[in-house]
């Protein structure tokens, strides 16, 4: 077994330090070491995006990163999105548009969507779909997810009624 390495990083505004095996995937560090189980694992090939988090403000798939790669980084997970009990506008939009059912893809979907709006505050429907191309959902057919993201961007969903 290889030597453990020392990690320090900020997660949802709190600094953490831990000794981990070098092979520890970031998603497992967040879930199993820090207990932040909101970030989910839905595949093993970087395909589904359930593990999407923000690293220094940008979306990343935490199943395809070593925890070591996030040394010193500022990480936000779904648990860090709602501020003092108030849902983030994206979370609120997902709720109002019924953009979730089983909820498993939801944290990753919400993190991908907020990253998208950070980069493109008024995306078109097509740009929303492109922005979510790396996040799979099995329940919603994406209809209400796309509506939610458009709604969170202050736009109505053309063609997305019902």
């Amino acid at each position: 077994m290889s030597d453990k390495i020392r990690l320090e990083m900020t997660v949802n505004g709190q600094s953490h330090s831990a000794d981990v095996e070098p092979r520890t995937l970031l998603v497992h560090f967040l879930r199993d070491d820090l207990g932040l189980t909101g970030t989910n694992v839905g595949c093993d090939t970087s395909s589904c995006g359930a593990c999407t988090i923000h690293i220094d403000g940008e979306s990343a798939k935490s199943c395809t990163m070593l925890a070591a790669q996030a040394r010193g980084a500022n990480i936000t997970t779904i648990e860090g999105l709602a501020v003092s009990g108030e849902l983030h506008p994206m979370q609120q939009a997902f709720m109002e548009c019924h953009g979730l059912q089983c909820g498993y893809c939801t944290p990753g979907m919400v993190m991908a969507a907020t990253s998208l709006l950070n980069e493109n505050p008024k995306p078109s429907e097509h740009e929303v779909r492109e922005g979510l191309e790396g996040n799979l959902c099995r329940c919603t057919g994406y209809h209400n997810i796309v509506k939610a993201v458009l709604s969170a961007s202050g736009q109505s969903a053309q063609g997305g009624g019902a």
Partner: peptide, 11 residues
């Protein structure tokens, strides 16, 4: 939804 949207849902 609130639980599932905030990562509070426990699978």
């Amino acid at each position: 939804d609130p639980k599932l949207l905030t990562g509070e849902g426990k699978y």
